[in-house]
Design a binder for these strands. Structure first.
Length: 500
RNA sequence: GGCCCGUUCGUCUAGGGGUUAGGACGUUAGAUUUUCAUUCUAGAAACAGGGGUUCGAUUCCCCUACGGGCUACCA
């Protein structure tokens, strides 16, 4: 590793929602940059106008912000290497492509899409490369005057790289070690499209150079095109400045085979996007904490070797290291993702959860007026919540009387003695000034004994009176929080139902 | 088909020439909780196969198998 400043980029194309794999690539970029006091750049690779999706760029930025991995430089917060959208850099790529043509490393090609399709169909293993290029319509095969004429007539054309024969291109990947390719198996990829836009291959090299990128992280699907990029770095004369490459293992589908795709979420019933995207619920919408989401993503293909799995973003930054990234693809496991969220809900303070929980309750029509009351409730129930919406189910009864009662759990075993007991409880409560959990528990038990009832026989009914079902924290804590009047009220109401 | 990458419990992974192959999720059983969850304890569960190298290979090398990726004027 040289001593030049660490600069990394996350370079997504705005073609839709940002899925797990993309966010993880961004995260690893961020972690590496921050660990080495470097810069994290967001560059939008919108060179394909056909696939451009309105709003996708803003969505990507929102996702990164939600995750807490905000770029230092981006289209909306440009640094000195602006612009950060490749579409806005369009004019600059042509110059480099022409330069390659002049040097004999690239050439003009006039073949139409139809002609190429025909070849691909008729010739087995057809490649636009050294074997066939002489028989096709390009500046290598056509006489110079004809090429000049075609160019002068503005005949649609592309610029292709001229892959050399009989060479071995190899490099050292930070994750995979030495990787080699034979140039004879590589085809002459298009560098500049007929519309003047560069393809990924040209744009990524030019921009990484111009933006002084020192380390390039990208998914493993890019490995096969790495030799093209290596050749380009060389031909453009920038070899000494080439970033170090790191091809990240892919995130695979939880079932079956293949890499995780955007459609898998809908099919398998779990989110693949960080934030909601066009009606598809994301991790955020499903009730994940960004801390948990990021933590989970970090462990998909990386671990710190200690056996610990719960890390804050800052901890990830200090612990991150490329040599602990695994080579094999990681299957996405939604159960594990949920476990991370549950751990994070337990770990953070109630205060941290306040805004999110309030929103969950508000969405369900519960207006929270007293923040202190809410905080106490959150503290009391957070250990039993996995996703944010669980807070509704676990706390609704604190704000409204139970919508219904689990009558099956009480009615079959109901007796007149129990009715008497609860009537006595009401009276006892009425005569106390304030409901204190410990005091009330003691007197509740004493009264049960006095009436010849087993505490257990009245505890469950009491819980169901207050909560509606067999769940929730210590019942006397609930009563104390509800307060004397509300408790009395609920017991009275429930009694009617239980004895009906 | 061609090229490239990969392969330790169901899943994420640790380990690495001699280990009872460790942890986590999930799962099973039990304890605690007079509810549920949490928590705790215990259990089942893996080195793809074949050749080398070696005193010894899960670990190093080769082959095979399997998995994955790429093979567009998409990224």
């Amino acid at each position: 590793m040289s001593d030049k400043r660490v600069r990394v980029r996350f370079a997504p194309s705005p073609t839709g929602g940002l899925h797990l794999g993309g966010v993880r690539t961004a995260l690893f970029n961020y972690l590496f940059a921050k660990k080495h006091n470097g810069d994290f750049v967001l560059r939008i690779e919108d060179t394909d106008q056909n696939r451009y999706v309105e709003g996708a760029e803003q969505y990507i930025i929102d996702c990164l912000n939600w995750c807490g991995i905000t770029p230092d430089e981006s289209p909306v917060t440009p640094g000195q290497y602006a612009p950060y959208r490749q579409s806005e850099r369009k004019t600059l790529y042509r110059e480099y492509a022409e330069r390659l043509v002049m040097q004999g490393h690239a050439y003009y090609a006039f073949d139409t899409a139809e002609e190429l399709d025909k070849n691909r169909k008729e010739i087995p293993n057809f490649q636009y490369g050294q074997v066939y290029r002489d028989g096709l319509r390009n500046s290598l095969s056509l006489p110079q005057h004809l090429v000049d004429q075609l160019l002068a007539d503005h005949t649609p054309h592309v610029i292709r790289i001229k892959i050399p024969a009989d060479q071995t291109v190899s490099f050292t990947d930070m994750i995979r070690g030495r990787v080699s390719f034979e140039t004879n198996t590589i085809d002459d990829k298009v560098l500049l499209k007929a519309d003047g836009m560069p393809t990924y291959h040209l744009a990524v090299v030019v921009d990484d150079y111009l933006m002084k990128i020192s380390h390039a992280f990208r998914g493993e699907e890019w490995l096969p095109s790495a030799p093209i990029h290596l050749l380009l770095w060389d031909y453009l004369g920038w070899k000494a400045d080439m970033p170090q490459w790191a091809h990240l293992p892919l995130i695979l589908k939880p079932d079956g085979h293949g890499k995780l795709s955007k459609r898998d979420g809908a099919r398998l019933g779990f989110p693949v996007f960080a934030l909601d995207w066009e009606g598809t619920e994301g991790f955020s919408g499903m009730g994940f904490l960004p801390e948990a989401f990021v933590n989970f993503l970090a462990t998909l293909g990386w671990n710190d070797g200690s056996g610990h799995e719960i890390f804050t973003l800052d901890e990830l930054v200090t612990k991150f290291s490329i040599d602990r990234i695994s080579k094999a693809g990681a299957r996405f496991d939604f159960e594990k993702a949920k476990w991370f969220n549950a751990e994070w809900i337990k770990k953070v303070k109630a205060e941290r959860l306040k805004v999110e929980v309030k929103k969950v309750l508000t969405d369900k029509g519960i207006i929270v007026e007293d923040d202190t009351y809410l905080l106490t409730i959150i503290e009391l129930i957070k250990d039993r919540c996995t996703l944010l919406p669980d807070f509704y189910q676990q706390s609704a009864y604190f704000f409204q009387t139970p919508a219904g009662y689990d009558l099956n759990a009480v009615k079959p075993k109901w007796t007149n003695e129990k009715t008497d007991f609860f009537k006595a409880i009401i009276e006892q409560l009425k005569s106390t000034e304030k409901l204190i959990a410990a005091d009330f528990e003691a007197s509740f038990k004493a009264l049960a004994e006095e009436k010849g009832l087993k505490t257990g026989d009245v505890m469950l009914p009491f819980r169901i009176m207050l909560v509606g079902g067999k769940f929730g924290p210590h019942v006397f804590d609930i009563a104390a929080l509800l307060g004397k009047d509300e408790t009395i009220d609920r017991v009275e109401k429930a009694l009617i139902e239980f004895t009906a």
